[in-house]
Design a protein around this nucleic acid. Structure first.
Lengths: 215, 215
DNA sequence: AACAATTATCTTGTATACAAGATTGTTGAC
DNA sequence: GTCAACAATCTTGTATACAAGATAATTGTT
């Protein structure tokens, strides 16, 4: 099943906004975008609506749509929410995860460890994502899983930044170990708590996130 | 600032889907809807996209959009997720809620009690919603607040049903009292736990929800 | 009569044309 | 020179026209 042009444009625009190609408050000109993508305004408008719906842009009627890069406050809020979603996933996963799921999780964590040992931050970034997605899956709640995936996707660019900092990868990995253990033990509260603080932005991580915003 | 026609249509369509006017899997015909609303296909298409984004309909490329009424499984999943979101709000609210916020919460609960005493289920439904929204607000996290509001809105029709059952209103109210108390005391864990089980669908409530689905 | 293939029709997706509100620039009055 | 009102232009929102894929129907063959 082929994607329609509007969806392709939406994805590309999403990437552009993620990359910081557009400054906060910048207007997304339908006509310019239409020319750029060599299409009419119609698919561009559909794509813009998608961006608006996903919160990456704001629409002011009869004025246009403007990109909405999250500021420090909103970023913290999103990470806070992500932490709670992950805690919720962990809570369920501790009770519901199958033996196979636990195996997949362990395997995913092995790949994370591998990346750390090689000092490959880029690879850790990818494998870490997969690790967390196994937990979402383990919650055995498709709706919650989708919500978690949605927010994970939006926070993607900022997670990436944090890994650049010295010692972060190793610490993250050691937290993973504790998470796997708690899930294997079926300890709901422990799993939820570790995951919450694993994802939450506190102390050191706060400075790192803020530092990343300027670069 | 005036709404555009497409948004009005989106809202009306949303209401129609909520009311169960459309069966699950039914196709939303662009042309028929355009005729019905006395408008061209363009605003209808925009409205349909909104429905798809909010999860109330599914789009199959080159086939059309079809309404997606949640089945029992998805409903349970949504309630589970809602419970976790509310627990998260409670967790934050216990620490962050201002004196003014606590007052508003108490006032909202007074109105709930009033509705119970009058046996006015419809009014309780409204005031209960406001009560919970005060908690979302009290979490002092706009992003989380919006997520909670979004899901609360989607679950609206099903919450309404549950209140029809004998004793449910009184029990709900007594749980409210405990919630207010925990928040006032700043007891994060207690607030989170009570809210979770207050919202979650377990035991009796499960049967009630299922019963409501058939009517 | 049943099945396959081709054609007709219908529906979505995209392009273009038009309408209406918003912004900006100019002109005129004080 | 400044402010206000009007006009010109630009941009969004809606309507219509066209293109392409999907479904249904009809016809031909076995």
């Amino acid at each position: 099943m082929e994607l329609k042009r509007a969806d392709q444009i939406a994805e590309q625009l999403e990437q552009l906004v993620f990359k910081g190609e557009y400054a906060d408050g910048e207007r997304l000109d339908e006509i310019k975008l239409a020319e750029h993508f060599r299409v009419s305004r119609t698919p561009v408008r559909e794509a813009l609506q998608k961006l608006v719906m996903s919160g990456m842009a704001e629409q002011i009627p009869r004025r246009g749509v403007f990109v909405r890069q999250p500021g420090p406050v909103e970023l913290i809020e999103m990470f806070e929410t992500m932490a709670e979603l992950e805690a919720a996933c962990g809570r369920f996963a501790a009770v519901r995860m199958s033996e196979g799921g636990l195996d997949r999780l362990a395997k995913a964590n092995d790949k994370c460890r591998d990346a750390v040992e090689r000092g490959d931050a880029e690879r850790y970034y990818v494998e870490n994502e997969a690790f967390h997605q196994e937990i979402y899956r383990g919650a055995a709640n498709s709706f919650l899983q989708n919500e978690a995936l949605r927010l994970q996707n939006r926070l993607k660019p900022y997670r990436r930044m944090q890994l650049r900092f010295r010692g972060r990868m190793a610490q993250s990995l050691s937290e993973h170990e504790a998470i796997v253990e708690a899930l294997r033990a079926g300890d709901t509260e422990k799993a939820a708590n570790i995951l919450r603080s694993h994802v939450a932005v506190q102390g050191e991580k706060f400075q790192q996130l803020m530092a990343g915003l300027k670069g």
